[in-house]
């Protein structure tokens, strides 16, 4: 464990807690893409299949349970909670996220480190996580104005990915045979997707104006 990875995990944890807090306290999910949340729930479900068979550490297991629990409860809130679901903007959140799932699954079947069920599902979760933010970014562009909690949520998610890249650089130089192109490339693609959001987020912060993305 290195400081970049710990900071990355904590930032990732903060992002889901910010979102859960927003939904739970103000009972609203305005501006939040249910499609992205469903994709994240699928990502964690496919990535943590070995949660009970491959014990890494208490920290690892606890964090996996938190990510599984939070992502599924956010989806539950947005789908079934009688108050929250009313604030879900389903005719704006129209990204066909099934078009993301299938190509990621095919790619995972073609490019993976080992052709076993668990390894393919794990690789699928990496590719899917790389694109899972797209429906949310599209929704932000559509709804123009971003309430600061949703903006903070996306910002923290991007920061977690950036810190993970620093973690991989650190591990590459400190652990002799730590080379994982699949993880690195999908993580890099994911981080690049946030680049333009970061740019507009920074601009709005610098000019101290409401964040809005160009159409």
């Amino acid at each position: 464990m290195n400081i970049f990875r710990l900071a990355g995990d904590m930032t990732h944890l903060a992002s889901v807690l910010v979102l859960l807090l927003k939904i739970h306290t103000i009972k609203s999910c305005a501006g939040v893409s249910l499609k992205t949340q469903e994709l994240y729930a699928l990502v964690f479900a496919c990535r943590y299949l070995d949660i009970f068979t491959n014990f890494v550490s208490l920290y690892n297991t606890v964090m996996k349970l938190i990510f599984l629990g939070s992502s599924f409860s956010i989806v539950w809130y947005m789908r079934y909670h009688k108050v929250v679901r009313r604030s879900y903007d389903k005719d704006q959140d129209t990204f066909r996220h099934y078009f993301l799932v299938l190509p990621c699954l095919v790619l995972a079947l073609l490019i993976n480190e080992k052709f076993t069920f668990k390894e393919v599902m794990w690789t699928f979760s990496l590719y899917l996580e790389a694109v899972a933010i797209l429906p949310q970014l599209v929704l932000l562009q559509r709804t123009r104005n971003i309430d600061n909690l949703t903006g903070q949520y996306v910002f923290l998610l991007g920061a977690y990915r950036g810190l993970y890249i620093l973690n991989w650089i650190y591990r590459y130089f400190t652990e002799p045979h730590f080379v994982h192109w699949i993880t690195w490339i999908s993580g890099l693609v994911q981080t690049l997707l946030y680049a333009d959001f970061f740019y507009y987020y920074y601009q709005s912060w610098k000019n101290n104006q409401k964040l809005h993305l160009p159409a």
Binding site: D50, V56, F67, W122, N167, T183
Partner: peptide, 10 residues
């Protein structure tokens, strides 16, 4: 084997 050392990440 080296594959599993990437599995210690979340």
């Amino acid at each position: 084997d080296d594959v599993d050392d990437a599995k210690d990440e979340l």
